[in-house]
Computed example of a mutant assay.
Amino acid sequence: MSNLQLEVKQMIIDALDLEDIEASEIDDNEPLFVDGLGLDSIDALEIGLALQKRYGIKLKADSDETRKHFASVNALAALIQSQAEQ
């Protein structure tokens, strides 16, 4: 697991106050919503705010592209990397 994936997992845990889960328990490729981690739209807003605060990334809530970025830890990590390279 890379440092960025670990950072993303910890950001999700911190942003959502997930006290009963460890970063190592979250699969990098596992869906974050519905199946997998089981997050919902309110959780997506919280993660979006955390991304904006920590990495300066602003996303459109109703965009199909945003849904793709929120698919998994790896997808979020790829988004962060692409933004950092710009």
Score class of each variant (00 low, 15 high):
Ile80Asn: 14
Leu39Ala: 05
Leu6Thr: 14
Gly56His: 07
Glu46Pro: 07
Ala50Ser: 15
Ser72Phe: 03
Glu65Leu: 10
Met11Ala: 11
Gln5Cys: 14
Met11Phe: 08
Ser24Gln: 04
Asp27Lys: 15
Glu46Val: 00
Asp43His: 14
Gln81Ala: 14
Ile12Lys: 06
Asp40Ile: 04
Glu25Lys: 11
Leu45Glu: 06
Ala44His: 01
Leu16Ile: 09
Ile21Gln: 14
Leu32Glu: 05
Gln81Leu: 10
Ile12Arg: 02
Asn29Asp: 13
Val8Arg: 00
Phe33Ala: 06
Leu49Lys: 06
Ala61Cys: 01
Ile13Asn: 09
Ala15Met: 06
Glu46Phe: 05
Asp14Arg: 08
Asp27Thr: 07
Lys9Arg: 11
Ser72Met: 04
Leu76Arg: 06
Phe33Gln: 11
Met1Leu: 06
Leu16Phe: 10
Ala75Ser: 11
Asp62Met: 07
Ile47Asp: 01
Pro31Cys: 12
Ile42Ala: 15
Phe33Leu: 01
Glu22Trp: 00
Ser63Asn: 02
Leu32Tyr: 08
Gln83Arg: 15
Leu16Glu: 12
Glu25Ser: 15
Lys68Ala: 11
Arg54Pro: 00
Asp17Thr: 15
Asn3Thr: 11
Asp17Pro: 09
Asn3Cys: 03
Ile47Ser: 07
Gly48Met: 14
Glu30Tyr: 09
Asp40Pro: 05
Lys60His: 13
Phe70Leu: 12
Ile12Pro: 04
Ser72Ala: 04
Leu37Phe: 13
Ala77Pro: 09
His69Asp: 05
Ser41Leu: 04
Ala50Phe: 09
Glu7Ile: 00
Gln10Met: 06
His69Gln: 14
Ser63His: 04
Tyr55Cys: 14
Leu51Thr: 00
Gln86Thr: 05
Ile57Phe: 12
Ala15Arg: 14
Ile26Asp: 10
Glu7Ser: 13
Glu30Gly: 13
Asp35Gly: 09
Gln5Ile: 00
Asp43Glu: 02
Asp27Leu: 07
Glu85His: 07
Glu7Phe: 00
Asp20Gln: 13
Gln52Lys: 11
Ser72Thr: 05
Ser24Trp: 02
Ala75His: 08
Ser82Arg: 13
Met11Trp: 13
Phe33Gly: 09
Leu32Val: 04
Ser82Gln: 12
Asp64Pro: 09
Leu4Cys: 05
Leu59Ala: 11
Asp17Ala: 15
Gly48Lys: 07
Leu49Asn: 08
Ala78Trp: 02
Ala23Asn: 03
Ile26Pro: 12
Asp64Gly: 00
Lys58Ala: 15
Ala84Met: 05
Ile80Trp: 13
